[in-house]
Amino acid sequence: MAPGYLYQNFTLQDAIDAAGPAPTPAMFGYEHACYGEPSPEFFQNINPATAHAFFSTNNGETQFRHVENPLAFRQMGYWDARGIQSYADQLRSKFFDRCMYIQPLSCYQDMYIYFDAHDIYHLGAQNLWNVIHHMHYENQVYAFEQGDKTIPWIDATIQQALYNPSNQEKLRSWSSDSGNDILSVFSHGELGPVHDLAPNYHDTIRSLMMNHWMTLSRGHPVAPQYQINSKYIPPTSNCLSITSANPLIVVALPSAGGS
């Protein structure tokens, strides 16, 4: 479920009501919503090394689904705020730990981290884009409510350890298909005092390490500007809401080509 009952002096229902109906394609300069979707080539040229599709494949338990003969024009529409919230709640209920560290997306290609081609095509890239960035906003509220100062310290400590190129290579070489716990990547001491934390923090450490592994597997260097623990980084321009009181409909979508 969404964090808390209040979003800084307004309720979740207030936010949904304020959002009103789903936006029209004309609001984004399109005649049809599908004109803002990725091109058919986007659904055919997929890099399997980075297309984890964690949500669509239930964390790798099911196969990545492709789309046969994707069409540039198809009937589809935008979800309203209630639809975005409902889908976000479903994901958070099923994948709570992973959702707590959602990464803001920089382009449509990043969506393959979370979804397979089938879901992006049939549910709509723009709708799923809104879901991911709304959940990123929710995580800011979670962080405020929980106030656990240990978690940002853990991530900062892991980040410092990953400045070491040999540690980067160790994490990059780990495979999610190996069956090995990602915590086993580093020997005692290589992550500094993080190793000495109580077992109740292990899931948090796993989630943070998984996010850094995803960043490395996508070819980005590990540096402060690439930190992807969304609980502790400021909102980006990709997460702008239509109104300051409404995080449930976002804009600043990437180009329809999906670059």
Rank of each mutant, 00 (worst) to 15 (best):
P3A: 00
Y7S: 01
Q8S: 10
F10H: 13
L12E: 02
Q13Y: 14
A15F: 10
A19T: 08
T24W: 01
T24F: 03
P25R: 12
A26N: 08
G29C: 00
G29R: 04
Y30T: 03
E31C: 06
E31W: 14
H32W: 03
Y35D: 13
G36E: 09
P38E: 07
P40Q: 08
E41S: 08
F42W: 08
N45I: 11
N45D: 13
P48D: 10
H52R: 04
H52G: 02
E68Q: 11
R74P: 08
Q75Y: 10
M76A: 08
Y78W: 11
A81G: 12
Q85T: 11
D89C: 15
D89T: 15
Q90K: 15
L91E: 07
R92G: 03
S93G: 15
K94S: 15
K94N: 15
Q103M: 13
Q103R: 15
C107R: 13
Y108E: 05
D110G: 11
Y112Q: 12
I113K: 09
L123Y: 12
V131G: 12
V131Y: 10
H133A: 02
H136M: 12
N139P: 10
F144L: 13
F144M: 13
F144N: 13
T150L: 10
T150W: 05
P152I: 06
P152W: 07
I154D: 09
I158A: 04
Q159E: 06
Q160K: 12
N164R: 03
R172P: 01
S184P: 04
S187N: 02
E190Q: 14
V194K: 05
P199L: 08
D203V: 04
I205N: 02
L208T: 05
W213N: 01
W213Q: 01
T215C: 01
S217W: 01
P224R: 04
I228P: 00
I228G: 00
N229A: 09
Y232P: 02
T236Q: 06
S237Y: 07
S237E: 01
L240P: 02
L240W: 00
S241A: 08
I242L: 14
N246M: 06
A252P: 01
